[in-house]
Design a protein around this nucleic acid. Sequence first.
RNA 1: GCCAGCGUGGCUCAGUGGUAGAGCUCCCGCCUUGUAAGCGGGUGGUCGUCGGUUCGAAUCCGACCGCUGGCUCCA
Length: 674
Amino acid sequence: MVKITLPDNSVREFEGPLSVCDIAADISPRLAKDALAGRINGKLVDVTTTIDKDTPIEIITFKSDPETALDLMRHSCAHVMAEAICRLYPAAKLVYGPTVENGFYYDIDLDEPISSDDFEKIEAEMANIVKDNQPFTRIDMPRAEAMKKLQAEGNRYKTENAQRASGDTLSFYMTGTNGSAFEDLCLGPHIPATGKIGAFKIMSVAGAYFHGDAKEKMLQRVYATAFADKKELNQYLTQLEEAKKRDHRVLGKQLELFAIDETVGQGLILWKPNGSVVRQELQDFISIELRKQGYSQVFTPHIGRLGLYKTSGHFPYYQDSQYPPLIDSDQMGLLAEEGCSCAELAGRMQEGEIDGYLLKPMNCPHHIKIFASERYSYRDLPIRLAEFGTVYRWEQSGELSGMTRVRGFTQDDAHLFCTEDQLADELKGCLELVQTVFETLGMNDFTVRVSLSDPESDKYVGDPENWKKAEQACREGAASLGVPFTEEIGEAAFYGPKIDFVVKDVLGREWQLGTIQVDYNLPERFDLTYIGADNTPHRPVMLHRAPFGSMERFVGVLIEHFAGAFPLWLAPEQVRVMPISEKMNEYGESVLKRLQAAGLRCTLDDADDKISAKIKRAHVMRLPYMLIVGQKEQEENTVTVRVRGSKEQRTMQASEFVTAAAAKYNVRELNLEI
RNA sequence: GCCAGCGUGGCUCAGUGGUAGAGCUCCCGCCUUGUAAGCGGGUGGUCGUCGGUUCGAAUCCGACCGCUGGCUCCA
């Protein structure tokens, strides 16, 4: 019998065995979970239990309430995995084993490396534990007693975990019965017994620092997942396989979009002709929007003198994430004669004794200097300077990933210089631009993050009052979007807070794309002014914004978003003309010429192949339109159109198709109906 | 950068110490084609690099380079 006292002091009794659903019939599933965990609304509730020793208190079947129960089952499975690993590797010290999206992991301190070859035997041991159907039992212990016990066991990680936990009581969960029992410090709750665990699979093992601190010891993190049954597990695994096929690195090769060559360098993207079409179309699209919003296009060099970055604050403080400075060859020769060491050189550059150039890690200083090159009145503001600016950053090798994390990338950057009064309107304009981008591309699945400074950290520069104003502007801007947003402490840029737009890739990893940043700092550092109505100099406020973020990352994410099947306006090749036989090549050529004249990107597949082979090839390349031309079409001056994603086709006048396709190209539509 | 795994023709991969393989691509020829790969032939690889062990290394060991998954980081 489980007796639960609810916050309103009413008492509910339940006969075991019962499930979340049983409880949820009376109260909510969430409440049921919390009740079983001994907590409701943060307050302890009275969970009285057990008619006899064999009836565990927490009886939940995962099938009743999929979301909550699956999570519970996975967490219980984490305990089972931990137990299995401890049996197989007695030296293993358990650290922490939470559930995550799609599964769970357990961090383990063990010198002997666990490899994927070991998964099978761990799974076999887990299967034994599941088969034994061992009950989970909660043991509540007064804090002092629990700490004593943990210290005696000598696992520093568990002791530290316990120290972090709040409350007078600490709970342990025991799997199995005394004698063969496995025990772990845990908040709970758990499923009643291991037998309720469905299908599970160990997915991978990776290194992870204790407490996420790079100075701490690296632990082994074993990732696994569990589902109600084998069928659901297999479904998930299949889904994962499918997702991998949409990976932009896979499609990048298949669709000939981009390449990375180690002799060129890690994290440096070579845009192939097909990828370049996508990029160019996106740039054109943004450029048109910028003209509408009153931006001015500028161009600036890829390097700048060290002094520029000393003023901005990037040198020497962000040296680790930049390529080392360039030095001119005359100076290099002199230094060589002097026998100057690298360490000396670095020091002398910092001191300003030796000049050098930095590959620009961002475009702001250059744009600031364009603003500073003229004397502006308040009447001239806002000034909006836009550039597709290529920047270089020295990302750690292990962080590089396809197009989404690279060392050289082009931001669709702009800097807006305005008065404080204009800030809210300018911010709104930037937000609208980002929304236009997402809407045009049908990307509805993004999250908004307001990135704030961390008062504890010293990496943020500038006046706290200005930070307050800037952060408030970001909050209000984000709120005006009408979509939920989160506030993240410590995610701000060193010069100001941001509104970031974040999307997930096919493997569930989050990437920041668009960003809008409010900056009171750099105008200060560069002593920027405009002349106010009172005929005295005033400090402008700066906005940094990039609706795509970077062309590389954005296109990488976009490839996955469309699974390579770009809408017509972005498709590298839009139409392919496919004659049935060699005899129709001439007619095909004439159709091709008309498509080309209409400005469409098209080719003729005049290979000596059957039409089915030509269709297969075009299909693999995700061609929006295939135009099949044979005897019949030639005679009637028509084309048979096969639209991507459909096996149906329709025959129409060639001129009709050309006009319709060209019109569609111009409006940047997502659908291919014609 | 850290932990683990991986690295074989342009691509996808097989090959566990004994003469480097397959399919696709590509080239040549045949077929002249009506809706997701027609047939035959051919080119192409000092098995990431360097070193070691061995009579003998794609295969075992080490270092380095690169990639993948995580961690850390991301102005």
